[in-house]
């Protein structure tokens, strides 16, 4: 029991130790160079100023972080759901794949910075344009990866199922779709930070809540500590969400090569 606890502590230290050291060094270097070169705080504030700013206004920062995180997660779920449905439709036939892929690419290549103001005109200042922007930016990587994962199913397994006269639907449910999980999780790792960016960009054009709005306000007031504070919170959010995906990946893909560390006696 005690040994187990020590092992766990060792394990956490193994993962948390290196990034903590790196960040501490970066911040120390930043702090020292700003102070030595006497750069004005309205150009580049030292990390200590930023941390004081965040701590003194912690409730405001937390509220805005939650708003942006909600938009990003909501948009991510919406975009991923549509992408997964799209991928399963495209998996049914090469015809549908050829037909729908250009549409998906069109959505992908349209710069969100260009359509964000348009969405404000169409959908107003509320939650909807933010969700949609985050969803659009999530859509493409999830779609492409989900489809690639389903197509990568072992032909031996599909042959086996076909030799038993399994229906197309059965083959998809039993083999192809679960086979795409590793690909899906990889795409989530890409899409989650993108969804956060989408939500922030959408906030630049509308609304007064969220970290994106905070950045715009700080920029207008030349309040650099606040601007950096918001960016810090965004970075923290990104780390939190990515860690969450990594955790889900570890639990869900225990069988996959990417998660294999030990247990392999083959």
């Amino acid at each position: 029991m005690r040994e187990d606890l020590i092992n766990r502590a060792k394990q956490s230290l193994y993962w948390i130790g290196p990034p903590v050291v790196v960040f501490a060094l970066v911040f120390a270097l930043w702090e020292i160079s700003v102070r030595v070169s006497e750069i004005e705080p309205y150009l580049l504030p030292p990390p200590s100023r930023i941390i004081i700013e965040v701590v003194t206004n912690i409730s405001e920062y937390c509220l805005n972080t939650l708003v942006t995180m909600g938009e990003a997660i909501g948009g991510f779920i919406l975009g991923a759901a549509v992408a997964i449905i799209g991928a399963t439709v495209m998996y049914q036939s090469r015809f549908l794949e050829r037909g729908l892929l250009p549409l998906a690419i069109l959505i992908k290549v349209t710069p969100i910075i260009a359509i964000a103001p348009l969405f404000v005109i169409w959908f107003g200042f509320g939650l909807l344009p933010k969700l949609l922007i985050a969803a659009i930016i999530t859509f493409f990587p999830v779609l492409v990866n989900c489809l690639a994962g389903m197509r990568a199913t072992s032909s031996d397994i599909t042959d086996l199922l076909k030799s038993l006269n399994a229906s197309k639907f059965e083959i998809m449910i039993k083999a192809s779709f679960p086979n795409s999980y590793p690909y899906l999780l990889s795409s989530f790792k890409i899409a989650i930070p993108l969804a956060v960016i989408g939500a922030v960009v959408a906030e630049w054009f509308s609304g007064d809540r969220g970290l994106g709005s905070m950045i715009i306000r700080a920029n207008n007031n030349l309040d650099m500590p606040q601007l950096f504070g918001a960016v810090f919170m965004l970075a923290l959010m990104g780390i939190l969400l990515t860690t969450l995906v990594l955790y889900i990946e570890k639990k869900l893909l225990f069988w996959h090569d990417s998660q294999k560390v030990e247990n392999d006696i083959g």
Binding site: S154, L160, L164, N165, I171, K174, P178
Partner: peptide, 21 residues
């Protein structure tokens, strides 16, 4: 190739053919 389904246990892999059709 054994072509087993990696996310299924031994038991569930053997059961697969009886689950379809």
């Amino acid at each position: 190739d054994p072509a087993l389904i990696p996310w299924r246990t031994v038991y569930d892999n053997i059961r697969l053919p009886t689950e379809v059709n």
